[in-house]
Amino acid sequence: MISLRINGNKYDVDVDPETPLLWVIRDHIGFTGTKFGCGIGECGACTVHIDGEPVRSCSYQAGDAQGTAITTIEGLSPDGSHPVQKAWVAEDVPQCGYCQSGMIMATAALLDEKPHPTDADIDDSITNICRCGTYPRIRKAIHLAANTKGEA
């Protein structure tokens, strides 16, 4: 049995502590916004926040997340109103959409650390994969979110 704090709620889960956090979030707790893309931490579709830091949850053991505050896309805002989500809507970023939870979580963490990232900062930080190639709109949306975040 392990105990996890996800999106402000406590969950006790009967699971092997070595199970990747991703699968505990998806299969045991039931938040499916966090996606499985590669299982080796390459693509970033499974990005969540652990104590505010972006983490690729497919390659992070659930047992190690005990005692931390985990945030998934479902917990980023109660109603899709986080500045990054609003910027994503304004730029109509998603295509297939499968990678976008991870992209948004990676971006939210970036903006917490660097409220006004340069293009070079974005290149360095947003290393998630999008096979639809939404990258140009992602870049625009990140700048838009940075410019609107203070107003929210």
Partner: peptide, 27 residues
């Protein structure tokens, strides 16, 4: 026009193949 699927794809609620749940379902 804005896409009709954008909202669900930015809040994690869009259902893809891997997200389907049925009562009594195994994986």
């Amino acid at each position: 026009k804005s896409r009709k699927d954008t909202t669900a794809k930015v809040d994690g609620s869009a259902i893809f193949g891997v997200d389907v749940k049925l009562p009594g379902m195994l994986i």
